[in-house]
């Protein structure tokens, strides 16, 4: 099936759409859990954009096997650098999310609510 739009452009639009959804959710929701979910959505969107930016027209995954011979690797493989970077980004995103969730648990224990309207101490 061909749509006329390159597949990586579609992926990029999807990724940026997810990012905008996440940003909108972070700015408008008052519940800390929802803010965290929005943050994860935003990170996922950026990861998709990064992976999409490494796509080469008509190329395949950079794994040398029967589908991609040693000789044609330079011509028919996608850019492996964004993929390698995204692995890092996913791990760091996971770490940040875990710490945020731990803070959410602590905040809930302190005020028995997850609404950020209840936490006004550091608001100016």
């Amino acid at each position: 099936m061909t749509t006329g739009i390159p597949v990586s452009t579609i992926l990029m639009i999807t990724g940026f759409g997810l990012t905008l959804t996440g940003l909108w959710g972070m700015l408008t929701h008052r519940n800390i859990m929802r803010i965290i979910i929005s943050f994860v959505l935003m990170g996922t969107g950026f990861n998709i954009v990064m992976v999409a930016s490494g796509y080469v027209t008509g190329a395949t995954a950079p794994i040398i096997d029967t589908a991609l011979g040693l000789g044609e690797a330079g011509a028919r493989a996608i850019d492996p650098v964004p993929s390698a970077l995204v692995v890092t980004a996913i791990v760091i995103g996971f770490s940040v999310t875990a710490v945020m969730l731990a803070f959410a648990i602590r905040l809930y224990a302190a005020k028995k609510t997850l609404s950020i309207d209840a936490f006004t101490e550091s608001k100016w």
Partner: peptide
């Protein structure tokens, strides 16, 4: 954004 047609030198 223009889809890459060939690998960048580093990727190659």
């Amino acid at each position: 954004y223009v889809e890459l047609q060939a690998l960048r030198p580093l990727a190659r």
